[in-house]
Every structure is written in structure tokens, then in C-alpha cells.
Design a binder for these strands. Structure first.
Lengths: 210, 210
DNA sequence: ACCTTTCGCTACGGGTCGTAGCGTAATACC
DNA sequence: GGTATTACGCTACGACCCGTAGCGAAAGGT
């Protein structure tokens, strides 16, 4: 047993508080400067650490911002509100609240853009941000099936595709509303969105989108 | 009448061919270098113009890339395929095809990210990219109402909100699927998406999402 | 005490930025 | 044709940021 230090290593241990300080400084810099004007030297000064310390812990700006933004999504939960529509509305409102924060707005899209040319970064985003969100979709779907609101999927492959589709529709709509249309995903909008998602554009069992 | 030159100005006219060359060079650089490593000096060399010419025509990298990417969306059309679902599938497939191109993938998200801190850039994106797409939603909706598939909206304010909602759902889902989930929005996916959008998650008049 | 790792600091070459200045080219007006 | 006006290509520049190397000191284990 040599696991008193994080990985059984010898030598001076890393200052754990510095990690938190650096990530907080990164978010602060994102708010004040935005992605493009954010420099690692500036973050180091804000965090009260040397620039070299930053480079010892993160490969570069991209990975640092991913980790800084990922922490924002820790607060996502899925309380049981009794129905599929209510569950969707609840989680979408939480998601919208996160995306309304400037550090998320400027950082998230930028790293996604960078990830289009960086497979490792894409995987980092998937593991630390996307996967956590997708688990909420899975949980909500299971609940709805237990309630009888959705038909249970026998084919697990089909089920996975359905979850991916729903996830892209929910997250995509909120992100597009917030960042591209640049208008708030408030309760009214979320309500209309949920109605369309659950009942569709054509007036079926529920009222139409008007 | 002094409007033979574009705006009635005197002096040497601008080389119109240079504009096209610069935008094409920008797209090429986006493919080869991506957003972050794209430099205006490099674009100038590719286009065969001086770097100063670039700065005389565009305020900076952001605006240049917006214009370069906007041209990609010129090809969007909305052929009448007979039904709302078919119309949606057609235009979504076109949209997906554009987003599959590397110059769109790396450029679009990056400028949207920059636009979160730049009101003028946001307006430029809205005018040259978003508005054109939204017009297709308007046209498709009018067709569906003419066919009787959608109830006509009496309140123009409600109608505008519905169009905005649909637009965010369609564009958002495709963008998220393509850029965040990083998987192709192929025919199978588009078909499933359209079914959910038109008929909803719950098995109403149509079949469920499975 | 000794070893190992981290940390802060300084310094560096390399690259990009955005602008200024200059001479020249291309057009409109007279 | 001559002149005014604008666009163009080119060069050069200070400022900034990058990412790394090298050093001495600090903080833990053994």
C-alpha cells in the first residue's frame, strides 16, 4: 500500500487547491474576456500560480476550458415531477439556466468548435459533459416507460438510437435557442418546446403548438 | 447619376474577383487548419492578395469567416415534396449535407461562440445565415397550412413564436447531432427525427419513435 | 539525511496581430 | 489628356502571446 499520495507516487504532492483556483480563474476570465481573448498567462495570474504550473497540468487552452465548463454541469439533476412532459420541462429549464451563464456561453461553443478537428478533445467533452447529460435522458425515458407513457423498447440497439435522438433534439434546441437565436429559453418557450416534443407539430391528442 | 461604380464613388474600383478569391481561400484554410490556426496572413497568401487588402474589406477574422461560411448556405432550397414530413426531411438532409463539410463544421460553431460577446457579429450572422434558413421554415409552414396539415395561425405574434421554435428545434438538432455527437445526420436519422418532430414522442396518430 | 516531485520565477525564440507609410495602378470627372 | 480619388501591393514595425527550458527552493515520502 503506497497510496497515501494520489497514485502512490513519491515526492512533493500537487496542491489540490490550485486546481480549483485555476478552474475558477478560467471561468472568471471567460466571463470578462471571452474565449478568444483568454490567455493562459492571464489565467495563471488570476489563479495566483505560475504559468508553468498550468502547462504541467493541462495540455492547453482547449482542455482547460473543457474542464472549467464541465464543472458547471455538475448541478444537473432529474427530480421526478410525475409526468414525461413535466420531467422534460424541469431538466430543460436547468440546462437553460446553465447556458444562460456567460462562462458557459462563451466557452462551450468554442471548445465544441475546436473539437471538430481534435479527436482527443471530442472524447474529453463527451466523457465530462455530454455523457452526464445523456444519463438524464436515459433516466427520464425509463421513468416514462414505467409510467406507461412510452412504449418499452425491446431492441436495445433501437433504444440507444432513440435516446441519442431525443438527446440531440433537447440539447440542440436549447443550445440553438440560447446561443444562435440569442433569446432566453424561459418557461414559456420551454413549455411550447415540450409540447411539440411530446405531442408533435400536428395537432394530435394534445393541442397544437400555438 | 454617379452610380456606375458600386456606390457612386470616384477612384479606382475594388477588384470584385478578389472578394471571391478571399472567401474561397478562407474556406480552404478552414479545412486545412481549422478555426484557431487560421491566420489572416495565411488567407492573404492563399488568395494572392496583400494582407492589408484583407483588413481594408473586413474588420477581422470573425466577420471574414462569417461571410465565407454564409456562402455555403446559398444552395438551400425547399422543393415541394407533397407533405410536411417529406418537406422537412428534404430540407434537413440539405442542411446536414452542408454541416458535414469541414469548412462549415470548424467555422460555424467558432463564430457563433465569438458572437456571444459581440453584438455586431451576432447581427451579421443573423442577417447572412440564420434569416435565410428561417425563410425556409416559413415557406414550409405556409405550405403545410395550405394542405391542411397544420392549423393556420390567426395571431401573427403566435405564428412568429411558432416559427422560431420550429427553427430552433430543427437547426439545433441537426447541429447538435453533427457537431456535438459527431455522428452523421444520415437518412435514417433524419427520418426518425422528422417522425418525432411531426408526431411527437408519445405514440399518437402515427407510429412511435422506434 | 536523502530522494523525488512540484512550484515559482525568469528568460527566450517564434509567431501573429493590426497599423502606418509609401509608391503605383485603375477608374471617374472635367 | 489631365487631375483627383480611391484601391492595391509591399515593407516594416511595436506589441502581444505562445510554449518551453533552466534554475533554485519547497514539500512531501522512506
Amino acid at each position: 500500500m503506497q497510496s497515501r499520495t494520489p497514485a502512490g507516487r513519491t515526492g512533493r504532492p500537487r496542491n489540490a487547491a490550485a486546481d480549483a483556483a485555476i478552474l475558477a480563474a478560467t471561468r472568471q476570465a471567460l466571463v470578462e474576456l471571452g474565449w478568444s481573448k483568454l490567455t493562459l498567462g492571464d489565467v495563471a495570474v488570476r489563479a495566483g500560480v505560475a504559468k508553468t504550473t498550468l502547462y504541467r497540468r493541462w495540455p492547453g487552452k482547449n482542455e482547460l476550458v473543457v474542464d472549467a465548463v464541465a464543472e458547471l454541469f455538475d448541478e444537473l439533476t432529474l427530480p421526478d415531477r410525475g409526468s414525461l412532459a413535466a420531467d422534460i420541462e424541469g431538466v430543460v429549464l436547468q440546462f437553460a439556466a446553465i447556458l444562460a451563464r456567460p462562462e458557459a456561453r462563451s466557452g462551450l461553443m468554442a471548445v465544441v468548435a475546436e473539437a471538430t478537428r481534435d479527436e482527443a478533445l471530442r472524447e474529453r467533452i463527451r466523457a465530462s459533459i455530454v455523457e452526464r447529460q445523456k444519463r438524464l435522458v436515459l433516466a427520464g425515458r425509463a421513468r416514462a416507460q414505467a409510467r406507461g407513457e412510452l412504449a418499452p423498447e425491446s431492441d436495445p440497439d433501437e433504444a440507444a438510437r432513440a435516446v441519442d435522438l431525443i438527446f440531440d433534439m433537447v440539447a440542440g434546441a436549447v443550445v440553438h435557442r440560447t446561443l444562435v437565436s440569442a433569446e432566453p429559453a424561459d418557461e414559456k418557450w420551454v413549455h411550447g418546446f415540450t409540447r411539440v416534443l411530446v405531442f408533435g407539430l400536428t395537432p394530435g391528442p394534445g393541442p397544437g403548438p400555438g
